[in-house]
Design a binder for these strands. Structure first.
Length: 828
RNA sequence: GCCCCGAUAGCCCAAUGGCAGAGGCAGAGGACUUAAAAUCCUCCCAGUGUGGGUUCGACCCCCACUCGGGGCACCA
């Protein structure tokens, strides 16, 4: 061992020693404590998506928290009072499954993991404000989940209904629509089935328009991709509801269509086979038997079958007829599974000529196809391809000759006048199913009374805590384990006092995360979930950082909650997260890391080998934050090398702290100020990799200045190395702190402040202008940065190489952009 | 099938419509050394996926296509 920590200038950089050295110092200095009274700095709320305590931190956490930290630390250096909190999203199935396996209370596993993660975050030097921590599984937190549930219930936004719901046979619980991905359970990839159940819902559909329209405020501040995904998910469509008279039925049937202009082309009607309407129409039609068989057959089909793209159309003619309101045509009514019972009215008018699905059905069932829009495409009758473009209306009575837009307007107003229909909107978004048949979640605070019905648990009895897990069988069996806790379940009705039962379901854990960002400022408030004063100080979140996996789950639900709370007068903003950054994933050799794939990289190993700073730096420098980091492309040892180079500089500086930088050598000063300016701009625009590159450039230039330029005593060298330490403090806090000390300063470098850039130093004293002929570079000249267009043009034309190249040519035009370029256009 | 995003050196990635290269990885050579490691210095490499267009000038804007990634998927 040749390491000698007393011989500072030549000792090797020892990251392990430096890490151990600074943690206790930071614990004492507390550079990241937010919300001290009378703090005059303007606020910034930087938020990382809180983790689920599934074990120790992994590579993905390391990336996410490294990025969030760069932003938080940057704003602190820029003089803001930054709140950068953390908590744990601690309810959920993995804990429950682990508990079943280990035969113990899920809270043991959960709190153990939280302790492990918390210790790792401290070692990883996350700039969190540790005074605001909470866990969603703490009764003190979920008490407010229950309180909010009751607020929604009171407003009719939390309600129960019977419906065919998504059921995951693996998790043995129901799922919200958002939690079913391509027919599979988002959590365990089991094929989801349908089950008819009575469940709790939040009425997010009431907010569909506002969730959609308020996205205008997020434009340019959230990734376009997330906005697009939410738009698609909400799926607003505009069209018309049209009512059709049904033979031998008193009530007409209303259908929803986005193409009322094609009404004359409707040749049959289709109702969802699993709808009540279909059953009713089948009754007495003489085809009851076949209809029942058909329903039986489609019930056996899973979601996966339904999703198959080339699935042939099937259906049953119900032996009934509807009358087309515009031309009196008799339309046969069919039942099929290609029409969805829970979208629109569960019934459609089929226009096979201009809708591919209807055409496929018509061809399968030998039903007529009538073209009513002349689009110039080939006849769907012969091609089997529906024509969906704009065109001229034909075979459509008064609409003949109109284009699509005019025809829609005309038919809508005609239908409205005749009382046969009106324009309408529909959404793909469904209400949020929030009840779950599992133990480790927030109990739903409702008591079912045989006399009074749904009775809220009185708020002074909150939190309604989970019954003790001991003695309960947590194994999934399709109904909530809470049902077996008889002492807990059986209560007196708070209203009338008769024997009643508690609701035994627990809430979707996405409820917990839909408002947690409001809790941080008031995390110790015992009388309300959050105080208006705290919200006014800190909210909305200025910068949210997290994975794109939550694009339409957590981020949509949180926006919904914010709008509900806004309506309740509890907050005065409409959107919770002003800016959003989605970091990519950490992958290995192009695919997600997993034990089974054998490409798992352990964070603890990487930290052991290369140190915290080098891993943080590698994550940040690997590429743009939103791109995936392929660990096989990353060189942590390269990061270690760079950090050593930077660290070594701090031992070479021989001038004293406080020396007058303005006396320093000019060329290095220019590089320093340019680096500060560019890094600043890069961080603001999330190009952290570019910011790091600027620091590397400055390190190289400073090395050169020390070895073969201004020399170690020049004030410019100190200025440069101090700037390096400050910029590096965003990414490599241990190294930066160590450098700061070697430069003769007190901790913490995190609070040193971003050096003020001198604009005069950003202007070089000479720049190279390019002289082109017809866009091709012919020569270069060094000129003053303040040269005028005319001067530059004259100098360019005087250059011998240009004179020669221009001989015999006619100049038709000269474009000059001083001080960068002259382009001479000639006719050859 | 529909929608969105991307494609720059062996690799990861930079370039307000104005010199294609900032930074790094890998590679080659050299200095230091008894030697190696570490360190320092120097160098090599593409004309920006393809084909058109706009422009004095295009990695950048427009059109078509190829490939890759992502989202939605009978929502009428």
């Amino acid at each position: 061992m040749n390491t000698d920590s007393t011989n500072e200038s030549h000792a090797a950089y020892d990251f392990a020693y430096v890490q151990e050295k600074w943690l206790p110092v930071w614990d004492r200095v507390q550079p990241f404590k937010s919300g001290r009274p009378e703090d005059p700095r303007p606020k910034k709320y930087v938020l990382d998506m809180f983790p689920y305590p599934s074990g120790d931190l992994h590579m993905g956490h390391a990336e996410a928290y490294a990025l969030g930290d760069v932003i938080a630390r940057y704003w602190i250096q820029k003089g803001f009072n930054v709140m950068h909190p953390i908590a744990w999203d601690a309810f959920g199935l993995p804990a429950e499954n682990a508990a079943i396996k280990r035969n113990e209370d899920p809270k043991i596993w959960t709190y153990e993991n939280i302790a492990v993660q918390k210790a790792s975050m401290r070692r990883f030097a996350c700039s969190f404000d540790w005074d605001r921590v909470f866990n969603t599984c703490d009764p003190e937190y979920y008490k407010w989940n229950q309180w909010l549930f009751l607020q929604l219930h009171e407003r009719g936004l939390a309600y129960r209904k019977d419906s065919a719901v998504n059921w995951c046979p693996g998790c043995q619980t129901v799922l919200a629509n958002e939690q079913v991905v391509a027919g599979l359970c988002e959590r365990c990839d089991t094929a989801v089935t349908k089950k008819k159940l009575n469940q709790w819902y939040f009425k997010i559909t009431d907010y569909a328009d506002r969730l959609l329209d308020d996205m205008a405020d997020l434009e340019g501040k959230w990734p376009e991709k997330v906005l697009m995904m939410q738009r698609n998910w909400i799926g607003r469509s505009t069209g018309a509801n049209v009512s059709f008279v049904i033979e031998n039925r008193a009530e007409p049937v209303t259908v929803y269509t986005t193409r009322p202009d094609t009404l004359f082309g409707a040749t049959f009607m289709v109702v969802a086979a699993d709808s009540e309407l279909a059953s009713e129409l089948a009754l007495g039609s003489g085809v009851e038997e076949e209809f029942a068989q058909y329903c039986e057959k489609i019930r056996a089909d899973s979601d996966i079958d339904r999703l198959a793209t080339d699935r042939p159309k099937t259906g049953i003619f119900l032996n009934r007829f509807a009358i087309n309101p515009v031309n009196g045509a008799k339309l046969p009514i069919w039942a099929s599974d290609y029409v969805l019972a829970d979208y629109g009215t569960g019934a459609i008018m089929a226009v096979p000529a201009h809708d591919q699905r209807d055409l496929d059905f018509a061809r399968a069932m030998k039903l007529p196809v009538t073209v009513v829009v002349e689009t110039g495409e080939e006849d769907p009758n012969s091609t089997g391809v529906a024509t969906v473009g704009d065109g001229v209306l034909v075979n459509s009575g008064a609409l003949n000759g109109m284009n699509k837009a005019d025809a829609i307007a005309a038919i809508n107003s005609q239908l409205e006048k005749d009382g046969l229909g009106k324009s309408a909107r529909n959404y793909r978004l469904r209400d949020w199913l929030v009840s779950r048949q599992r133990y480790w979640g927030t109990p739903i605070p409702i008591i079912h009374c045989p006399a009074c019905g749904e009775v809220p648990v009185p708020t002074d009895q909150l939190p309604l805590t989970l019954p003790n897990a001991e003695g309960l069988d947590l194994k999934p069996k399709g109904t909530s384990p809470l049902g077996a806790a008889t002492d807990w379940v059986n209560v007196k009705c708070p209203k009338c006092g008769v024997e009643a039962k508690r609701d035994t379901d627990t809430m979707d854990t996405f409820v917990d995360s839909s408002w947690y960002y409001l809790r941080y400022p008031s995390s110790t408030n015992h009388s309300e979930p959050f105080s208006k004063k705290d919200l006014q100080t800190w909210l909305p979140v200025d910068q949210y950082v997290g994975g794109v996996t939550h694009a339409i789950l957590h981020l949509l639900y949180s926006r919904f909650f914010t709008k509900v709370l806004n309506d309740m007068g509890m907050l005065d903003f409409k959107e919770p997260f002003t800016r959003l950054l989605n970091q990519g994933m950490v992958v290995m050799d192009g695919s997600a890391m997993s034990k089974s794939r054998g490409n798992l990289v352990r964070l603890s190993d990487e930290l052991e080998h290369h140190g915290v700073d080098a891993i943080r730096l590698s994550m940040v420098f690997a590429g743009p934050p939103e791109d995936d980091v392929d660990w096989s492309d990353v060189s942590p040892s390269g990061s270690v090398k760079f950090l050593s180079r930077a660290w070594r500089l701090s031992g070479d500086v021989t001038s004293a702290p406080g020396v007058d930088f303005s006396k320093g050598e000019l060329s290095l000063r220019r590089v320093t100020h340019k680096a500060l300016h560019d890094a600043d701009f890069a961080v603001e625009s999330f190009r952290f990799n570019v910011a790091v590159a600027r620091v590397m450039e400055l390190v190289n230039a400073t090395r050169k200045a020390i070895d073969s330029g201004a020399g170690p005593a020049d004030p410019a060298v100190r200025e440069a190395v101090e700037a390096i330490a400050i910029m590096l403090s965003l990414v490599a806090p241990f190294t930066a702190e160590e450098m700061w000390e070697r430069l003769g300063h007190q901790p913490a470098v995190a609070l040193a402040g971003w050096p003020v850039v001198d604009p005069a130093l950003l202007v070089a004293d000479a720049v190279t202008a390019v002289v082109q002929i017809n866009g091709k570079i012919k020569d270069r000249i060094d000129v003053s940065p303040t040269i005028s267009d005319a001067e530059l043009e004259a100098s360019a034309l005087a250059l011998p190489a240009i004179v020669e190249a221009l001989s015999g040519a006619t100049i038709s035009k000269i474009i000059t952009r001083a001080p960068k370029i002259v382009n001479i256009v000639i006719n050859s």
